[in-house]
Design a protein around this nucleic acid. Structure first.
Lengths: 149, 149
DNA sequence: ATATTTAGTAAGGTTGCTTGACTATATGGT
DNA sequence: ACCATATAGTCAAGCAACCTTACTAAATAT
């Protein structure tokens, strides 16, 4: 009946904290006027250069996904008006994924929402704690990073 | 060409660190003789009481999933020999999901693997850092926890 | 007793990926 | 210059891990 605390292991804590942040962010973005927001779309948008755009194959490499998967998400985001495809001047095979004005507005909202959630967290645990946690997470993440062959 | 560092924000760091740990764990379990290991199966197994078993509806509540989804995963895990269903003596509607011997062996391997990954991490960043990180993660997680209505 | 709630099952749909097969362009060796 | 191979992207189909809707059976409340 009572929901037990999950095992208190560093791995579970990392997964849990990541999940919590992710869920809060998705909910906040949906509340902020982007009801069709999903995390995979956000990840993709976060992998597109704001100014020059990014080739699809590079997006796929950053996200560790196939280019077909990237193509599908870009299709969706282009249909929703956030992104557009344009030919790459330097490579006839390639296409650059670039932001539309609406896509840039999305990014600004996302930045604001992230700041708000961080501020709320800092209000509860203190700014120093958030800073220290960020630092330790960076260390842990780089220690666990797979060898960049 | 060069894969840029993702944005250095506390939220991304949390998500990233959780992903890294998760991926390492899945890979290690598959290497340790459980090639059919997936994270959703592991989550479910982690939600079953080792001794008394757990009712399906309680598993669903812990995982925040529908009971149908739980039923499907339990079907798979039962077919693979990790779990079994038995009638609940106290409620004629309910079934308890319990471990088989093979399921318990899986749990022991999972505990060992988690320990190994943690030890490797501690070897790189130091035990004190891991301990401090765990502490801060606990604080942050409880601060972000949704109101338990 | 009857109405409502609760535990679980059945069937089918959706999302977010995957693999396999293909076209078009680029590039490196001869 | 020509050909082999590699690379960028697309198309089609499939799969895992969920979901929704609709149901049965048992428990509980009125």
């Amino acid at each position: 009946m009572t929901i037990p605390t999950p095992p208190d292991h560093i791995g579970w804590l990392l997964v849990r904290a990541g999940q919590l942040w992710r869920d809060r962010f998705v909910a906040a973005m949906q509340a902020a006027g982007y009801p069709d927001f999903t995390l995979s779309r956000a990840n993709l948008l976060g992998s597109v250069d704001r100014y020059r755009g990014t080739r699809m194959v590079d997006i796929a490499a950053r996200l560790g996904m196939t280019k077909q998967a990237v193509g599908q998400i870009v299709d969706d985001l282009a249909a929703a008006g956030y992104l557009a495809r344009e030919a790459d001047a330097e490579d006839g095979r390639a296409k650059r994924v670039v932001y539309t004005e609406r896509g840039l507005a999305f990014l600004r909202t996302a930045d604001r929402v992230k700041g708000e959630i961080e501020a709320e967290l800092a209000g509860k645990v203190g700014e120093r704690t958030v800073a220290r946690l960020s630092e330790l997470l960076r260390d842990a993440a780089s220690a666990m990073e797979p060898p960049t062959s």
